[in-house]
């Protein structure tokens, strides 16, 4: 029998106390213990970005992130993006731009885009391209994904232009 340890973490805003093996990755805990299968594992080696989740707001590869290291931290996954059934702007932009095909990279892509936009709400195209460099998509050729992230950003959203004006005082993260 393997040794078990307890971790306490928040997953999509819900406090969780889990008894796990120390070897378990965050991806395994999310998928196998919590049933949050939206997080996908592809390369299993931190190359492809499919398993990207946010840990305390930072984009991480859940396939190589030990779950014990998430003890005391806040984890966000694709299942936590929508609020009360309403898609987040970046999700809606992925729908509008058809920024996915098979969908296997999509969860990781959305989480990487979320981290990017939270850090930099008005990225340039170049910043979006660089920000998504760690995430492979084999279907789309990236063009609609970049378009979607730009559309979801406040810079790419005509209606959001006003919000940029309004929010400029308290948007410390904006560059």
């Amino acid at each position: 029998m393997h040794e078990l340890v307890t971790i306490e973490l928040s997953v999509n805003g819900v406090a969780r106390s889990l008894l796990i093996e120390p070897r378990e990755t965050l991806a395994e805990v999310l998928r196998d213990r919590l049933g949050l299968t939206g997080t996908k594992v592809s390369c299993d080696a931190q190359v492809c970005g499919a398993c990207t989740v946010l840990v305390d707001g930072l984009a991480m590869s859940a396939c190589t992130y030990l779950a014990v290291d998430a003890d005391g931290r806040a984890v966000r996954t694709v299942e936590g993006l929508a609020t009360d059934g309403v898609l987040a702007p970046v999700q809606q932009a992925f729908v509008d731009k058809a920024a996915f095909q098979c969908g296997f990279c999509t969860s990781g892509m959305l989480m990487a885009a979320t981290a990017l936009l939270e850090d930099n709400p008005t990225p340039t195209r170049e910043e979006v391209v660089r920000g998504l460099e760690g995430n492979i998509c084999r279907c789309t050729g990236y063009v609609p994904i970049v378009e979607a992230v730009l559309a979801a950003s406040r810079a790419g959203d005509a209606a959001g232009a006003a919000r940029i004006e309004q929010g400029s005082e308290n948007s410390g993260g904006a560059r």
């Binding site: 949050l36 299968t37 939206g38 997080t39 996954t77 694709v78 299942e79 993006l81 929508a82 898609l87 999700q91 992925f94 729908v95 058809a98 996915f100 969908g103 999509t106 969860s107 959305l110």
Partner: peptide
């Protein structure tokens, strides 16, 4: 679309 952008 909805299934794929929500992880469902």
């Amino acid at each position: 679309a909805l299934a794929k952008v929500t992880g469902a």
